[in-house]
Design a protein around this nucleic acid. Structure first.
Lengths: 227, 227
DNA sequence: GCCTCCGCGTACAGATTGTGTAAGGAAGCC
DNA sequence: GGCTTCCTTACACAATCTGTACGCGGAGGC
């Protein structure tokens, strides 16, 4: 089922969108400000985000940047601002589309379909195999020596972000933002605890990590292949 | 180099687009009708297509369908028609974006960048190779003779600034400002220490730098190729 | 040609900060 | 109530950063 995260501070628009999208068979998350948007996105992993730019609190552009730190989910921006500079800023920050209010529901739906169509065929590898364990992203399952490894929700969340960025460094900020939300950007000790648990469950020698590598003062990196 | 196929039957728009896109470093193909568009696309495999809907001969929608038969190249539709039904039809036929004429060149360029970004995911391996070592900016990793070279956060930061300005001189002020912040503009000796460490870790003969060159009283320069 | 001065590179050590691990309390679920 | 999971704190250890000292060499003045 396709999940949409709708972010807008105007209740009637939020309501209209929710009703329309539900009627079309989408599962709908709603948020009225940037912080909840980032938190919900981190928790629910929507397939597409519809984002109003004129938010209270965190700026819409910052929400785009926050999301882009860890996910490539399509972002469709809604905005009353019709100035070219605004569009360029949003698109260059990482938005996929920019629709000016007032907009037609059919157009928005068509743009959503277009955005979703692009994502689906590019099905990322769902199975990640290493010499020591196998990760099935679709089934949310990790197998080690034939046995299933039980992971908690938080452990899985961290694993997922790292694995989806395999080979790349993920900064502590990105991880914290993705898993706990933007307010926790400084709580780096959470990461230490949970990365440590992942290592204990998955690394052949937890004290000498081979897959979940630390880059001091920067972040962590998942390295799927034995070096 | 990025190749753009522009399809429009109005000569002045075609001309304006060609000039603007060339000026931005794109390679530009042009076509004035649907048939040439399909032919050129097949021949040249553009990275993005900018397509006017109001074409003589084959309908614009048919061009989209024709392209979608064999390629997923991003298609940005231009059109004078602002009716929602037209947008929906084009998007559902396979277009990625729909821009109503008259449009701003900056907006179109931003939408092109957004479309291109999706195709070439931002995580394209940003690899800088020299005869002696390889830098992977995404992974934050340096490999030398097959072995990973461990760099500290500060070392990385300096390396990154230098590498992103490869071949150009980076002033001491720029470096200090980028790595330590504007308050440290005068602490040039920090640079000496850390550039020295980079040389020790990466230069074949640290005392005779070949990649990390000093420009006395000015700054440093990274030279990726052996002279 | 000699001397001085300034900037550069290196070495090193104390202070600071980051990291990994263990463990306990709170909250939720069966 | 027992179990699991999450959040939080504490602590030891290690790595990194910061700051000082010193030797070297080239540019320019004399």
């Amino acid at each position: 089922m396709t999940r949409v995260l709708v972010v807008d501070d105007e209740p009637q628009i939020l309501r209209a969108l929710r009703i329309n999208l539900r009627a079309r068979g989408y599962e709908v998350d709603v948020a009225a400000d940037g912080e909840s948007a980032l938190r919900l996105a981190a928790r629910d992993h929507p397939d597409v985000v519809v984002l109003d730019l004129g938010l209270p609190g965190i700026d819409g552009i910052e929400v785009i940047e926050g999301l882009r730190g860890w996910t490539s989910v399509p972002i469709i921006v809604l905005s009353v601002r019709d100035r070219e500079a605004d569009k360029v800023a949003a698109l260059d920050a990482g938005a996929d589309d920019y629709v000016t209010k007032p907009f037609g529901m059919d157009e928005l739906l068509a743009r959503m379909r277009a955005a979703l169509r692009r994502v689906t065929p590019a099905d990322e590898p769902v199975l990640i195999e290493t010499p020591d364990f196998t990760i099935d992203l679709a089934a949310r399952r990790v197998t080690r020596a034939g046995e299933e490894v039980r992971l908690t929700a938080t452990e899985w969340h961290i694993l997922e972000v790292l694995v989806r960025n395999a080979g790349r460094l993920v900064t502590q900020r990105q991880l914290l933002q993705a898993v706990w939300g933007p307010k926790y950007e400084t709580e780096t000790h959470y990461l230490r605890v949970y990365v440590g648990q992942l290592r204990r469950k998955l690394e052949p020698v937890p004290s000498e990590p081979r897959y979940f590598l630390t880059a001091a003062r920067m972040g962590y990196r998942f390295e799927p292949e034995a070096p």
